[in-house]
Write a protein that binds this DNA or RNA. Sequence first.
RNA 1: UGGGGCGUCGUCAAGCGGUAAGACACAGGAUUUUGGUUCCUGGAUUCGGAGGUUCGAAUCCUCCCGCCCCAGCCA
Length: 564
Amino acid sequence: MTSPEPSSSSHFIRNIIAEDIQSCKYDRPIMTRFPPEPNGYLHMGHAKSICLNFGIAAEFGGVCNLRFDDTNPGKEDIEYVTSIQEDVRWLGFDWGDRLHYASDYFERLYDFALQLIRLGKAYVCSLNADQIREYRGALTRPGQDSPYRNRSVEENLDLFARMRAGEFPDGAHVLRAKIDMASPNMVMRDPTIYRIRHASHHRTGDTWCIYPMYDFTHCLSDAIEGITHSICTLEFENNRPLYDWVLNTLAVACHPQQIEFARLNLTYTVLSKRKLIELVNKRCVSGWDDPRMPTISGIRRRGYPPAAIRNFCERIGVAKKDSTVDMALLEHCVREYLNERAPRVMAVLHPIRVIIDNFPENQVELLEAPYHPDNPDMGSRNLPFSRVLYIEADDFMEDPPKKFYRLAPGREVRLRYAYFIRCESVVKDPATGNIVELHCTYDSETRGGGAPDGRKVKATLHWVSASHAANATIRMYDHLFTRPDPDGDKNGADFTSFINPSSLETLTDCRIEPDLAAASPASHYQFERLGYFFTDPVDSVTGAPVFNRTVTLKDEWTKIRNQK
RNA sequence: UGGGGCGUCGUCAAGCGGUAAGACACAGGAUUUUGGUUCCUGGAUUCGGAGGUUCGAAUCCUCCCGCCCCAGCCA
């Protein structure tokens, strides 16, 4: 299933790049990069960045690199580098042979650090972490120079070499850029650029015991790769002067332009690695790929198509204003995509037995039902119709309110692609008072669902033949949180206290039309009148299908019922 | 109280001195064998506020207000 990409609208980053191309600022194609740290799974916020970086490069005839910003061995893991590649690929993007790791540049980065020292622009500082913080001053108070700030180049060179050689324990020294301890920008107060970490790195093993910091690594990695536009999120705006300082001081040939945009926030969920990892660790969800998670692996398992995600990312735009996008827009994009291509089938979630009294016992009729009402090319299947059926419990009311126009005693409705039926009587369990079954009669003249006499009926119900239906497990997913802003509580309540207790309801006694028992994993369906469902790629097996509700259909009736 | 950003419909978001696009959401209505889809229609006299410049301001100037980011040897 491929979908035409939406036409793009203008946003400031697109404008900047268009102007740069217009003015021939570069003598080569533009190059962007998506630079995740492999310390967690990718989520919708990353999807925005991925679509932006890969999308805009492709749009202007350039390329986008995938680069792992793996400079902190303590937090990173190979599991994440694997999942990240899978997720980016699934979203539909290709980095070709441009898969990079900041760790591949460690040797060059070390040389750059040496250069900085020789330039007198970096020094080994032997203050401990607490002391460095004290010396840094505060927002409204300038910092003080480190007593080690004026070590000689020779001493710095010697110390730094010994740091690399492993002569010192963690924390004994750091390498700092010598900039300005009185800068109003905290980032510029002699930032640490190397620290000692006797830790095994997932790629370089024990080769290194000193690791470069983000501010030093990122700009140089960009420069090494020849990035033209280094797009990142707003919180790095304060770091841009440092980005530029490093590249200018080292006089590297390539000096990419850093551009910041606002990160994505979505209602009814959280989008921060820290919070997502907390949900996983506290077992609030089944894992990173729980279909309720806003992770790429979660929405993939939920059944959100990659093209719908791309469309969403285009529609939300790119700007510098902090914003929270309505989850309804994401859901709209998913429905819009699936509406066109998901085959329609019938499934009864909460079955209630219906006996067609005037339908011959043991008789089975095959009724043709198209897979898509607006697209005959999708074909059709034959549905068995017999004397005993199941319909949705919600579709019958013994004492219906005025706006309810489904089945009720004495009322006639249509069974989709089958017959008109009329409810003649209701059988209840004398002990509990619960409805056991409905007795109905059908009109044989209405075969296929049309009435030759032009008689109208107000509702069309989905149904399934009791003896032919298969069983299925269906997972009804809803928003993970009950509040649109789970982490914006005024009283400071933890976001986990707003987890929606009904975010997952597992139905194990659902009846589905016969062919659906053999549904292959990872396929999309629309269960008529209910929503879009996706065969779970992990748990669904032929003969015992498991469906995940991807998203509901828009539902006028629920709206009416809820407002009364 | 320092520095850096940002404030246009309920939510995103165009607009860049010539008289407020679009999308989602919402509300009506039409068509409909999914209360689905599709299709019309409705909505910011106004752009955080107040002044000013101008024939003309969301767009320029001034002041004010609000929100976000920065004091990791995280990214």
